[in-house]
Design a protein around this nucleic acid. Sequence first.
DNA 1: GTCTATAACTTGATAGAC
DNA 2: GTCTATCAAGTTATAGAC
Lengths: 179, 179
Amino acid sequence: MTSARSTREKLLDAFSELLVAAGSRAATLDAVAAAAGVSKGGLLYHFGSKDALVDGLVERWRRMADDDVREMRAAPEGAAAYYLRTSVVERDDPLARTGVAVLHLAQEGDARAVAAFTDATEDWRAAIEEQVGDRVLSRVVQLVGDGLWAGSSIGVAPDDLDDVVSGVTRLLGEPPRPA
Amino acid sequence: MTSARSTREKLLDAFSELLVAAGSRAATLDAVAAAAGVSKGGLLYHFGSKDALVDGLVERWRRMADDDVREMRAAPEGAAAYYLRTSVVERDDPLARTGVAVLHLAQEGDARAVAAFTDATEDWRAAIEEQVGDRVLSRVVQLVGDGLWAGSSIGVAPDDLDDVVSGVTRLLGEPPRPA
DNA sequence: GTCTATAACTTGATAGAC
DNA sequence: GTCTATCAAGTTATAGAC
């Protein structure tokens, strides 16, 4: 631990920030090292290759996502509202930021990133289903969140998040009766 | 027109396919030219720089999106269901594929791509609102579509699209009464 | 309109000093 | 643990032949 661990974390932070802000073409070893305040040699001591850096980020995101599922289940507002609210990426939200970074890797075809997404998506959905009691409804809620989150990934912040959350909550609260 | 126009289109097709399949790091001039079956020199005759290639793709997507808004308004199943169904990217769907390609550019911070998205998103939403009659509901429907589409961008095809579409349609059909 | 050759620069990675 | 060379490969772009 101590400073070794700290530098590793700083490097992963810099990597994810660069991925989110400017895409993977901009997230070079040079740029990551500079943003973390170390030299390229320093970076390569902690992560022996760019692939190892990707591994480190995906693994960190898996841990964060697991923690988030637990927080979601305990959220007073309910798992659905919690998911929707945390789908809008705030500047200083490490989970959502890291998630967008991993999304970039998944979109490039990185199999580890795609697998991490598939796993986390199912865990989140199951937590929502526990609240709303229906599989398809849990999917719809999650997809609304994913839509918000996709917008965040290009820097478009919704100006009507509260309306959307209460709109969805209202739809859930008064389920349609069978015909 | 004739072969000049055809080569331009082939180059834009190759560019968007590479962006979608492997990300912008893989969409090099070399790779685009090879995929289109011309040399790099041939590419650079039609598009004088990589920036011009991006311009060409974004402009083409704007035209495709405009056409799609018209089709959406005329769709027998309704604008909402049309939007949801076409949000799942099929292999041979040029609009959705080009959209994911432009998404990649927007995520990298390309201002033209972000602006094209902002404009198209508002046009699509307005068309949905014309059907469902409520602004927030139109947003919710659109966000579900965007969520589906974000999944497609990492190659995750939903196995329950019909359930989701009919689930959303049912929610719309029986709007909650004011308390 | 399309090609090859080449120039100028960037990127990922290694070696070895401190 | 961190740094400064250094290198081979890849990237964008230009020049000029056909």
